[in-house]
Amino acid sequence: MPETTYLQAISDGLREEMRHDDTVFCLGEDIGAFGGAFKVTDGFIEEFGGRRVWDTPLAESAIIGTAVGAAVEGLRPVCEMQFADFIACGFDQLVNVAAKMHYRQGLPVPLTVRLPSGGGFSGGPFHSQNPEAWFLQAPGLKVVAPSTPADAKGLLAAAIRDPNPVVYLEHKHLYRRAKGEVPEGRYEIPLGKARLAREGTDLTVIAYGAMVPLALEATEDMAGARVEVLDLRSLVPLDHDAVLASVRKTSKVVVLHEATRSCGVGAEVAALIAEEAFEDLDGPVVRVSAPDVPIPFSPPLERAVLPQVDDVREACRELLAY
């Protein structure tokens, strides 16, 4: 299998879905002739034309709102938010119109919203956020966050084919850094299924997105301890079985995410474990995350806020010694 970047895998996945299904189209800011701020849709307008690769006005409500209308009328729109942060401007259409549509009136909304997310490059408070927890509070939305090129392609295909609105978080840090073997052709990674990134017996780090490679790096050499790394892949639906199976095996859990701490995915996973696997624990569930602050611009400040390899290693060491 050829080795591909995470960015290329997303681009390939989107292109293949568009080639296969002419109801799939994409819309967003600067995605046409410019190919998108990160070049995910580079070359798309030449292949698919301006109707299916719509360079929209700078208006996120318009992007998501028109996509909702097109979706209920039988198309499969894929919206690009130029940065995940800008979803705030289209939030109402996503959480009030799209998310609640099927529950309220039995009308599915097959809609994908791509969110280039995450920090680590001095993007500052408005180009670095990880807003996934906002969507965990909006029943009706599915939320995925791939960590590898192969998952990025397969989860995007699954998101596009799903009859529900799916929030697809693609971490900018992984775009050109994450490389891996990606199957050729169309395939699907099912929504709601976690992946064991590394098997272990002594402790589990539960992570997703860019924190998965960080967890693998941080726990590669833990003085003989064998650390399991569980890649959630989907945040909604959350793979309860995979989480609980790993807890029952290792009895110690660190939940790691780049997003802020309070009411985040880590809190949800910790609560799940407390409710369902309390008896299996040999120590407290530990969260490693950004603190509850905006993402600052200057590199030393940003590094202080975002989880680093040493933070993960230290948390694991302490929990292993508990």
Binding site: R52, V68, G69, A70, L75, P77, V97, K100, Q105, G106
Partner: peptide, 28 residues
Amino acid sequence: RRLGCVGMVSMLPDMMLVACGLALAFQM
């Protein structure tokens, strides 16, 4: 929905954009 209506939400005028999306599908 069986009669071609996409029901409104309380946030106004959100459905104007949804109608634009329906129209976009017709146009495409």
